[in-house]
């Protein structure tokens, strides 16, 4: 029986594209006390304090196999609550991340089925993040697994499905109108591949804007980057090469020190090569939209 490749690839490419999209999207430097003169931006989460967000990710992947086009749509809707539990010795916030609601859908290729995620709602894991929102760890000792089906890569840990939580903030003092550029290179592991995401991001603190009743700084991040990966899995050599463009807008309530909203749109063109028992070279175009919004 056939067809593992297209679906497995959809999971692989979507994950890589999202990782690449998010790798450079959050402002990375900055801090001060007034948005006009300049201020330091940081999260604050007291012990017992809770923040509830709704998050939505939609991804459309267009690919071609033997001259025939396919479209695969994936979606993930999550409502989650982060509750402060104190700080670690390095000043990072330790929190309980509870999934209040969770759905995940996949459709497009005949036979593709949305996974059973009934174990996720109510599940709690540990989420450690820096004051600037950088994810330090996502620990799930109970290891909830989501079975994507044998055709889609099999059971995957829930932690691997959580692409985005809080946006990263600049470490340095910044003020409205500031623009700066940051280049970075991250290496991640996916399906036996070392994937290098190289990106250059131009950040702009555009303005102050009221969103959902909060006075927010609107921070724009525009990223262009490349994806390069190679490795081996299940006896197959995998290679991926592509380009990524991402635009992210973060609304950060600087007085309350919490993220109110984040919207990110990403576009990538890549080619995935599988060699070994199966030879395949497949162009893939992926478009993603991510929205994370404070509920309460």
């Amino acid at each position: 029986m056939k067809k593992i490749n297209l679906r497995t690839m959809s999971i692989l490419v979507t994950g890589i594209a999202l990782a690449a999209a998010l790798s450079g999207c959050g402002p990375k430097n900055g801090i001060v006390g007034d948005p006009v003169k300049g201020m330091a931006l940081a999260y604050s989460l007291g012990e017992g304090q809770s923040l509830t967000y709704s998050s939505s990710i939609t991804t459309t992947m267009n690919t071609e196999q033997m001259g025939q086009a396919f479209t695969i749509d994936q979606g993930q809707d999550i409502e989650f609550t982060i509750t402060g539990q104190g700080k670690d010795s390095e000043g990072n916030y330790i929190s309980a991340l509870k999934f209040d609601a969770y759905t995940q859908t996949m459709e497009g290729v005949p036979g593709m089925q949305s996974p059973d995620v009934s174990d996720v709602p109510g599940h709690v894991m540990e989420y450690i993040f820096s004051p600037q929102g950088k994810r330090i760890a996502l620990n799930d000792p109970d290891t909830v697994m989501i079975d994507l089906g044998q055709m889609n890569g099999g059971p995957q840990p829930l932690t691997a499905m959580i692409q985005v939580l809080l946006a990263s903030l600049p470490k340095d003092v910044k003020k409205i109108g500031d623009t700066w550029t940051d280049t970075r290179q991250d290496t991640t592991q996916r399906m036996g591949m070392d994937v290098i995401n190289s990106s250059e991001t131009t950040y702009t603190i555009e303005t102050e804007e009221t969103v959902n009743g909060y006075k927010c700084l609107k921070i724009l991040a525009e990223t262009t980057g490349t994806i390069d990966g190679s490795g081996e899995t299940q006896g197959m050599q995998l290679t991926i090469e592509g380009d990524v463009e991402t635009t992210t807008t973060v609304y950060f309530a600087y007085m309350e020190q919490k993220m109110v909203k984040q919207v990110s749109e990403s576009f990538s063109e890549s080619t995935v090569v599988v060699s070994g028992p199966v030879n395949m070279t497949q162009p893939v175009v992926t478009e993603s939209k991510i929205t994370v919004e404070l509920v309460k």
């Binding site: 050599q237 290679t239 090469e241 380009d243 070279t281 497949q282 175009v285």
Partner: peptide
């Protein structure tokens, strides 16, 4: 949405085996 043509040729990539074509 698109910018480049979809590439089916591994030899145009940097690290892929050239014969990895279906």
């Amino acid at each position: 949405r698109f910018r480049k043509p979809p590439n089916p040729w591994p030899s145009l990539l940097r690290n892929a085996p050239e014969d990895a074509v279906p």
